[in-house]
């Protein structure tokens, strides 16, 4: 019932070479226990991201969307295929070579409670990547002040500990950390799903604002279609380790082709009782048809 893997979409306007291209990437985790087959988290994924573009990656739990983000960051083992960044293959780099990429590729994680070391002040957290790169203490502190301003946090935030901030503010600190070394690509792993509704839209606006100013690209992983529609230029939908559909944000979130995407879209409740009642009826009808098709398929 799910349409087969679609070739990487070429629907982006520019003809320039992509910043990141993922070519037939497979990720397998060895299973515990002897001679058990390895667990395949990603099956031959292909995708590319242009400079300044947001690629939304949407799917449910277990779809492999987070694994793909981690593979780009070098935190998941790529067992087949290649990930190219700016033309060079980065998926087979060792830990040491990988470190040189920290200027280029950064990350914002989902959980603002565990992604910041609770024992370090905001200044220490933000200065750490800078000083690793050889920036002096004074210059690093100046840069941290700028960064805090960029993410709209008060200046005195630097001397405080992460636990003194709310979820939304912590996520701003995590964004500031990602921006530290002027990366060209940021992998965002569900960065707003732990936030309250009103913070969610503010943090998304911050992401967009930063992108407008710096031209950074995002690989934006989320389970929420309305978030992905708001932030992404293009969207890829993942299901069971494969991409079932990709295209522009409007196309995927309003008029998708793959039946899985349709199911996903119909399952998301609309904050409007009348429209939701219609959507619910459509969904139930759609699911009944799917079940029927399945049943007849089995009968034949």
């Amino acid at each position: 019932m799910i349409s087969t893997v679609e070739a990487p979409s070429g629907s982006h306007g520019g003809s320039g070479s992509p910043l990141l291209s993922i070519e037939g990437v497979t990720v397998q985790y060895p299973s515990k226990g002897w001679r058990k087959p390895a667990f395949t988290a990603l099956k031959g994924i292909s995708l590319d991201i242009q400079p300044g573009e947001t690629m939304g990656l949407v799917g449910e739990s277990g779809s492999g969307k987070t694994t793909l983000g981690r593979a780009v960051l070098g935190l998941a083992p790529v067992t087949a295929g290649a990930i190219r960044y700016d033309g060079k293959v980065i998926s087979s780099m060792n830990r040491k070579e990988r470190r040189s990429l920290s200027d280029e590729i950064q990350v914002v994680f989902q959980d603002p409670y565990t992604s910041l070391n609770p024992a370090l002040t905001v200044l220490d957290i933000l200065a750490e990547p800078l000083m690793t790169a050889g920036t002096g203490r004074a210059a690093a502190e100046q840069r941290v002040t700028d960064l805090l301003e960029q993410v709209h946090l008060p200046k005195d935030a630097a001397t405080r500990l992460p636990r003194e901030f709310s979820g939304g503010q912590r996520q701003r600190i995590a964004i500031a950390r990602a921006l530290c070394r002027d990366p060209r690509l940021i992998v965002c792993d569900e960065p707003v799903s732990a936030l309250d509704l009103s913070n969610q839209s503010r943090v998304l606006d911050l992401f967009i604002e930063i992108q407008e100013r710096t031209g950074v690209s995002y690989l934006f992983v989320t389970h929420d279609l309305s978030v992905v529609r708001y932030i992404s230029h293009r969207v890829a939908v993942m299901y069971k380790g494969e991409i079932v559909e990709s295209g522009t944000a409007d196309k995927i979130t309003s008029n998708p082709d793959a039946s899985y995407t349709q199911r996903l879209l119909l399952a998301a409740p609309v904050p409007d009782p009348e429209r939701q009642a219609v959507r619910r009826a459509t969904r139930q009808q759609f699911n009944a048809q799917l079940r029927m098709a399945e049943a007849t398929g089995q009968a034949n």
């Binding site: 306007g13 300044g52 606006d205 967009i208 708001y230």
Partner: peptide
Amino acid sequence: LLSSTLEGATPRPPLNRKPGVPNSTRPNPA
């Protein structure tokens, strides 16, 4: 709260980046 919901927000259009044009000149669709 109701206005914070992203439902019904205009989707971002695809990136129209011509080579050589800085990204920041692009109008902000959001």
